[in-house]
Nucleic acid binder design. Structure first.
Length: 567
DNA sequence: GCCGTTTTCGGCCCGACTGTTTTCAGTCG
């Protein structure tokens, strides 16, 4: 029995229990059991007694054992006999929970989206106690939105909205401080909605100006301190604003940054210290409420070091506090190893790119334009590459504060060959190999191509190793574990491509790379000078993967990297 | 259902908002 199937079954049981109107704590016990299993790194065979795990007791333990031994769960089967499966997807409707759906099923026999819609149209819902005409309208609207609204927004889409809103808030008088919070602040790949914390002594005025400045499609909720709206950018996106008093800013920011699991853990810790955390402050034993001027102070109040938003996820961060000071940070970055110029498909010249890197304070950089196979990107022929190489060597003489290295982003062709021969490659300082074509090939063929690049002694790094676009395409589906094993064997670097479109490798694979001892480079793949800024996103993505500074090659001094590349 | 250096019962993070009520349940994050 697969561990993932067990985790999903426990979660499924929780869903059905919710629809049965079970005690919410019982429901969450099943979710916690699923999470306990998921967070344990061991395989099922390696766990001797599941009930030894915190969060798994007799009830959930029995379910797990039955699943392992018989491949089924009596508990789930009984629930499924009682609760129609058509209700499960309805839990996703905004404003609909287990209790309401249970009532609708019990009173009106509603067991599917169609039945729910019909009951609304027949005005059956408003007859029930606890429901009214507004409930009916809302459900109908939700049922329609359900199909059209995108579920989660990739980070490259939310970025635009965040910038826009930041500009708006910047201009509103009476706003003393503001920040984006939520999963965006934690640098998740995708976000369900955006959260902003706004500190102000004049909430009514600020709220009014804020709402007037946004392209609002719909107002979901509008209270004194909380405003939820659907805003029209590229897509429709839900945004929550919290208007708080200036002294509450830090605790509110922390609260709405989450994650939920992180907050629960911290609140439990606070409780053990006879303190109570809310978004307004920390209530002390004597009833007074402490507020803070920084999150660092806030954490220190509980005897904790500052925990960066990027690692506030499943609660395990509290067990890894000692690793936090070693996590890679933006100021550790000494170089960018992947960027393009007007020689191929970049927007800026060699000189402009060099100046932009200098002004970021980098100690070295690598120019890596595309190779000739990539005709749409005006890829360089061997002749042009060598000409560029010469120009870079010449330009480099002009700078004493930055070392400009000559490289390439060379295509791994569909037939598995490389776009430049060894003689050309041997003249470069840094060689990137990457796949830009024939993504649909079977995995074996993709892996063959990757292996060719791995075996070539001139290749130093594999760029965007899976070819994914966050929230849009999954890439060419390589066997990443195998890829990392090869990288280890052949001494290659794997890239963390910092472009918010890519963030490739993903978190789970970066964790795997670090475990296997495969070094990582965080690169922007910039095609214009302003794109060098995405290094910050890449570094946060790296933190999320718990990458330590020393594991990231572009935090190394150039001499150390050169030494490494020789091997 | 799970948990326990105040334990085997009584908590389980905490508060806002909505729509229904006429003081609160349900949902959400």
């Amino acid at each position: 029995m697969n561990k993932k199937i067990i985790i999903r079954t426990l979660e499924k049981i929780a869903l059905y229990m919710e629809l049965k109107g079970e005690n919410p704590f019982k429901v969450s016990a099943f979710r916690k059991a699923a999470q306990a299993l998921e967070l344990d790194q061991r395989s099922l065979d390696e766990i001797e007694d599941v009930t030894k795990l915190k969060g798994i007791g007799k009830g959930t333990g029995d379910v797990i054992v039955e699943l392992i031994e018989k491949g089924k769960s009596t508990v789930l089967e009984e629930l499924q006999a009682e609760v129609p499966s058509g209700l499960v997807p309805l839990l996703k409707l905004q404003g609909m929970g287990g209790k309401k759906l249970a009532k609708l099923y019990k009173e009106l026999g509603i067991d599917s989206a169609e039945a729910l819609k019909q009951a609304c149209l027949d005005h059956q819902i408003q007859k029930l106690p606890g429901f009214g005409p507004k409930s009916e309208d809302k459900i109908l609207k939700e049922l329609t939105d359900f199909e059209s609204k995108p579920g989660r927004h990739p980070i490259w889409k939310t970025e635009e909205a965040v910038r826009f809103i930041e500009d708006v808030l910047e201009k509103i008088e009476g706003v003393s401080e503001f920040s984006v919070a939520g999963s965006y602040r934690r640098t998740k790949e995708t976000s369900k909605d955006l959260d902003f914390i706004v500190a102000t002594a004049e909430p009514a005025k600020v709220k009014e100006e804020l709402l007037a400045a946004l392209p609002i499609q719909e107002t979901i909720a509008s209270g004194d301190t909380k405003v939820s709206v659907t805003v029209e950018f590229q897509d429709l996106i839900d945004i929550d604003f919290r208007l708080v008093a200036p002294e509450e800013f830090v605790t509110a920011l922390h609260h709405f940054t989450g994650s939920k699991d992180h907050n629960v853990k911290l609140r439990q810790l606070a409780k053990s210290q006879n303190k109570k955390i809310s978004e307004y402050g920390v209530e002390q034993e004597d009833g007074s409420v402490a507020t803070f001027t920084s999150e660092t102070d806030f954490y220190a109040h509980f005897g904790l070091p500052f925990i960066p938003p990027t690692v506030r996820e499943d609660g395990r961060e509290f067990d890894r506090l000692d690793d936090i000071p070693n996590l890679v940070a933006l100021e550790d970055i000494r170089a960018d190893l992947h960027m393009h110029t007007t020689w191929s498909d970049g927007a800026h010249s060699l000189k402009e790119m060099i100046e932009a890197n200098r002004s970021r304070g980098y100690e070295y950089m690598v120019i890596t334009d595309h190779s000739h196979y990539l005709k749409v990107a005006n890829g360089l022929t061997p002749e042009r590459l060598l000409a560029q190489n010469a120009e870079i060597r010449e330009l480099n003489k002009q700078y004493s504060d930055i070392e400009v290295l000559s490289g390439t982003e060379m295509d791994i062709l569909p037939d598995g060959s490389l776009d430049f021969n060894d003689e050309v490659l041997s003249q470069l300082d840094f060689v990137i190999a990457s796949i830009h074509s024939s993504f649909q090939q079977p995995r074996e063929q993709i892996m063959e191509r990757i292996l060719t690049a791995m075996k070539n002694p001139h290749v130093d790094m594999i760029a965007h190793p899976t070819g994914r676009i966050v929230g849009q395409r999954s890439g060419y589906d390589p066997d990443v574990e195998q890829l990392l094993d090869w990288a280890k064997e052949y001494g290659k670097i794997v890239e963390l491509n910092a472009s918010p479109y890519r963030l490739d490798l993903a978190v789970e694979y970066l964790e795997m790379a670090q475990e296997k001892g495969v070094p990582v480079a965080i690169n922007t793949d910039a095609h214009a000078v302003n794109q060098l800024e995405v290094m910050a996103i890449g570094v946060r993505h790296a933190q999320k993967s718990w990458l330590k500074k020393d594991h990231v090659v572009n935090t190394w001094p150039l001499e150390r990297l050169r030494e490494y590349l020789k091997n």
